[in-house]
């Protein structure tokens, strides 16, 4: 066991050389890299945060657009329904009117036919009456001379 002064002095010199080397060539590059990485990580985190924020914004925007589209679709659907109902109503009304018109027309026709038939019948009755009377009277009634009477008869029937 011995402490040797020359060794101590030599060791001290070596130590200071090592410290100076570390100070100049080891410490600065590594701490610089560490600091740069710290900055880069901070930037990356900030960018990620910005990305998340813009994603949130975009999703909110798309939600809004979706909602608006849904409302619009609802409106369009409602308008279409309304229009369809209207068209059906209109068609119904038209059909009803048409039907009524046809019925009316048919009624008119019936009435006319009935009147015509009545007229026919009346004429035949008049003819029959005249024929009957002529037979009864055994003489020929002048149809033209008694036309007004016959007409009157026919009108009464």
């Amino acid at each position: 066991m011995q402490a040797s002064i020359p060794s101590i002095v030599g060791q001290m010199i070596v130590f200071f050389i090592f410290v100076l080397f570390t100070m100049k060539y080891v410490w600065p590059p590594i701490t610089k890299a560490l600091e740069e990485r710290r900055v880069r990580i901070a930037e990356g985190l900030a960018a990620a945060e910005r990305g998340a924020a813009s994603l949130k914004e975009a999703s909110a925007k798309s939600d809004e657009a979706l909602k608006a589209a849904r409302v619009q679709a609802q409106e369009i659907l409602a308008a279409a329904n309304k229009q369809a109902t209207q068209m059906i109503e209109q068609a119904k009304a038209t059909a009803t009117a048409e039907g009524e018109k046809i019925v009316e027309h048919a009624n008119g026709e019936v009435a006319r036919q009935v009147a015509h038939a009545k007229e026919e019948l009346r004429k035949q009755v008049a003819d029959l009456a005249v024929l009957g009377a002529a037979r009864i009277l055994k003489r020929e009634v002048n149809a033209s001379a008694h036309a007004d009477i016959l007409q009157d008869l026919a009108g009464r029937i």
Binding site: Q2, A3, S4, P6, V14
Partner: peptide, 15 residues
């Protein structure tokens, strides 16, 4: 020398 505190010895192994 072999003194406890040596003024001349170099500890080559340690160095």
């Amino acid at each position: 020398d072999k003194q406890f505190i040596s003024l001349t010895a170099w500890h080559l192994d340690t160095l």
